[in-house]
Computed example of a mutant assay.
Amino acid sequence: MGGLAPAGATVVTRRDGDVCYLQLHRPDAGNAINGALLAECGAVLRDCAAWARVVVIEGLPHVFCPGADLHEAAQSRPDRQAAARSAEALYGLWLRLKRGPFISIAHVRGKVSAGGVGFVAACDLVLCADDATFALPELLFGLMPACVLPFLIERVGSARAHAMILMTQAVSAPQAAAWGLADSTAADSANLLRMHLLRLRLLPRDAIARYKRYAASLDGGLEAARDKAVAANAELFSDPATHDKLARYAATGQFPWEVV
């Protein structure tokens, strides 16, 4: 597991002892999620299950993750089966972060929106820079964060999750910390991460794995919500009218209510 991404790769990984740093790395696409990124992240997390004590998910300095790659989605026709496969892969990846036998940390800098919030909410701990922002703008396009919602509710509660979805506005790092979406913020988030790792590396790997299995056994809500979330996501992303709105936004930057 090296520190450089080969040509075509969508992630950069680095191993430091029993800590895996997994950087989402699609600078040419603003770090948006596509099928390759999901597959590569999934492969890294499967490997980490055998040896990692901590997995740190990072983005680029100015954007963690904006959600789905709308430019890529606009190039294909609406397809419910394809949308379902994508949603299944996304939800499954987040379950790996949540249930894996390691401590997952989201190290957030810059903007996070849509599916990027799902990566954050799925992690055990969230550490962010003071200027990070979090937003769920899906309803503006007639969508909803169907796969994000179960993870977000578990992290911040129903009321906060619904407020984020309905308001569609960005939430600041201090507000995210107050709501429980972030665990800690700092101007120097890299140093914040280093301080946390000093403590977390003291925890035995077998104890982490046992604890996470036990915690999952107390509430299987995320597993129970999987089929509903995938179905809802597939229905929305395969709707032709919604697809046209997303394609227009990807091509022009104009929101659905703006006149052409």
Rank of each mutant, 00 (worst) to 15 (best):
I165P: 02
L200G: 10
A159H: 11
M167A: 12
T185M: 07
A186I: 01
A176C: 10
Q175P: 01
L192A: 07
L166Y: 05
V171L: 14
S172F: 09
A182T: 05
D206R: 10
R205D: 04
A161T: 07
H162L: 15
I165R: 04
A209W: 00
H196C: 08
L198F: 08
M195A: 09
A186L: 05
L181E: 08
R194S: 05
L181F: 04
L200W: 15
P204V: 13
D183I: 01
G180Y: 06
L203A: 13
N191K: 00
T168P: 00
M195P: 00
G180I: 09
M195E: 11
A209D: 04
L198V: 11
R210D: 15
A178V: 10
D206L: 09
L197F: 06
L193Q: 05
D206N: 02
A170K: 09
A178K: 12
N191F: 01
A207R: 14
P174E: 02
R199H: 13
A182Q: 05
W179C: 04
L198I: 07
A209V: 03
M164H: 10
P204I: 06
W179L: 13
M195L: 08
I165S: 04
N191V: 05
A177N: 02
L197M: 04
G180H: 10
R194H: 05
H162N: 13
I208F: 04
I208V: 15
A177C: 06
P204M: 10
A173R: 03
A178E: 14
L181R: 01
L166E: 13
A187H: 12
H162A: 14
R194I: 01
T185S: 13
A176I: 10
S184F: 11
D188G: 00
V171Q: 08
L197E: 07
A178T: 11
A173P: 10
L202S: 13
R205Y: 07
A163T: 02
A159D: 14
P204E: 15
S184T: 06
I208C: 12
T168D: 10
S184M: 07
N191S: 06
T185G: 07
R201H: 00
A209Y: 06
L198Y: 03
L198N: 04
L198D: 05
A173D: 02
A163R: 14
L198C: 08
R160W: 00
A161D: 05
G180K: 09
S189V: 09
A177D: 01
L202H: 15
A177H: 04
P204F: 06
A176D: 08
H162E: 14
A182L: 08
A207Q: 13
W179T: 08
I165V: 15
I165A: 11
D183R: 03
R205W: 02
A173K: 03
A190D: 09
L166C: 14
V171H: 04
S172G: 03
S172H: 05
R205T: 14
A207V: 01
S184I: 03
G180F: 11
R160T: 13
T168V: 10
